[in-house]
Design a protein around this nucleic acid. Structure first.
Lengths: 213, 213, 213, 213
DNA sequence: GATGAATGAGGATTCATTCAT
DNA sequence: GATGAATGAATCCTCATTCAT
């Protein structure tokens, strides 16, 4: 039994019912483990959540930096960011739900730390939008902040409805979302402009493997 | 003390911390009321949530129908839907968060009922996208389902960041979002095509009035 | 609305579920009355019980004294006591259950008072058994105390199973029980020796009228 | 701490104050245990009651079958049934009170199950009375049903007043009750006819040991 | 008489967590 | 690593009762 299994069980339940509504005993039950045993793997229920979120947010941030580094042109950077974000959300939907919804469940100390991680990530987007505008690659009438928030939120949504056994592959989702985002800033068929192709997402260690049925 | 005040206090806390993490005593404390007294106004904590969500979802659904009824052209219908949805989310951000996040907190019976309400609403959008494509008003390469989910999710996001005392008015938000949604289906400056102007949102009875400070 | 109706509703519920398991609101509901209104009729839930038990026990005691006064012979006195007790239990089964089971629900002060009433009544029986033995009307090998307790308990039992719409009339029950009690002290067909016939029981004001169906 | 101790504490309190009037905290206090700890031993307060009643009723039923099996003659069978029942009631008075009074405290599901157990036991008595009459061992004018109910009820009563430190031993109680029951069906000195002697009762695991003082 | 609103105390139960084994 | 027993605090909710209207 490894910490990873514990985190996966936690992610599954946190995503499904929420952190507050999930009992430590439920996590134990899912692992066929006494709840007391979980305390060999984690200091507290909140620590478990923090470990999950930190890993996911650090991954997201790193991925974002790589995405931006793929090109010097804001429009392409936007495409890679969307591709990476959507890829991560589609391949790790449960973990993505957790980072989207459970920041508020953290005690102040942890909240600050993890919020900083997320802000760092969002700052990448902000810069891309600002440069896209100043450089003139984005439509002039774009509101950088509103557009940024809209794009990120629409990408987050993927975690809510994407299913691996659905009609679309992850690459197809990425393509559609890149094109949608491109259009939002006035660029058509942005997907075609990504010379490196779509970002291949990584399956996070904390993402549980759910069997389709 | 009216049921409305109870619902507003509940919305405030449910939106902030989540349903599961909110105690009935906290709601009472916010109202300076003994927790037992709350049970004069509601049958249970879940009933309180159901009352709130039903009202909000019914409102959303009605609003959506009116929006669609404003025009026969899918592209305009999309604009009005976005305008209405964003308007509601901006004027009632806390209630919107609750309907976005707390469906999962409901027991099966209530879950089904309210999910049906939301599905009814989303069906309006689905029809608009399908007709927009078949009629040829939307760009041919639009994926109706993906685009619909993306647009709705980006509109929902407004509830997460909009503040009445921020730099933008509700109408400005509506305009920007209508334009973003228009572009997503290949139409520029959709806001200008809405002959009736933007939908004026209604402040829901359950939405608490928060004082900016 | 009279206190009597309140007492009847209370007896019905106390007999069915027990005093502790009956809520003041349930009594109100049965009367289509707000629970607060009940406090116009009684000082407290316990007062309600006390009123019921006092009336019933006083009735029982009075009835017992009359029964004993009907004859100077212990064996006939026993017959009349049984006839009276069984008659009361059969005509007022719910109230009888309450006095049999709910003494323990009373606070010390009330407990003492009502226990004294019941003891007074049981003393009548004790005297009859003692005189029956000393006078030689009861079989010599009778254990006065054991027989007395056995007879009383078996009579109490009537309240548990007698139904007005059952196959036996109250008089038939009385006859059978008088004969059983007679035999227990060695006298056959005691019922035939009761020159005054069976005691006609009184329907207590607190006994609810239940409709057979 | 064993489940048995928990059951004993529960029986003590349930017998004294009734199930509904007994708090889970009181049971804990009696055991010097936090009330939460009780939930390691039982699923709920009602489960605790069910466990107690099931054990007692199964014991009663088994004992009744053995009693009937001791002889082929109904009159002796009656004697053994009374001996067994009274013996059990005298040795386990608190548990007996619980099974006599608390069936009504059970939720429908449990109520049915345990009522069936009790009915099975009472069916043994019914058969004995019917055969006693048909075979001609019982007085011809006996009303089988009434006599049966009277005898059982008078035996149940033992639990209400018997004390181990009283003047009579259990065997003496058994003898007197067997004789009383015999006379009720027209047979004198039935105790002398029980060739196997009185039934030796078993102390149930759930019966608390109360120290006389 | 009657009631809606209100409450403090307490109901059963579950919580995250600790610790000796 | 693993667990059963244990607990204090908290959970939602119901209790009997009071009181202004």
């Amino acid at each position: 039994m490894r910490i990873q299994k514990v985190q996966q069980a936690a992610v599954l339940l946190f995503a499904e019912r929420g952190f507050a509504a999930t009992g430590i005993r439920e996590i134990g039950r899912k692992l066929e483990l006494n709840s007391a045993t979980l305390y060999h793997y984690t200091g507290s229920k909140e620590d478990l959540l923090v470990g999950i979120m930190r890993l996911a947010l650090e991954n997201l941030s790193t991925m974002g930096q790589s995405a931006v580094a793929r090109s010097a042109r804001p429009i392409e950077q936007l495409g890679y960011l969307v591709s990476a974000h959507v890829g991560l959300a589609a391949l790790n939907p449960l973990t993505s739900k957790v980072i989207d919804h459970e920041l508020r469940s953290l005690a102040p100390r942890n909240y600050e730390t993890l919020l900083a991680l997320r802000d760092e990530y969002e700052a990448l987007w902000a810069e891309v939008f600002e440069r896209g505008l100043s450089v003139g690659e984005f439509a002039k009438d774009t509101d950088a902040k509103v557009a940024r928030l809209a794009v990120i939120e629409m990408c987050n949504g993927v975690a809510n409805w994407f299913h691996a056994d659905g009609p679309l592959t992850i690459i197809e989702i990425q393509e559609r979302f890149v094109n949608l985002a491109g259009r939002m800033v006035g660029v058509d068929r942005l997907s075609d402009q990504l010379s490196e192709g779509h970002v291949t997402p990584v399956k996070l260690d904390v993402e549980p493997t759910v069997w389709a049925g």
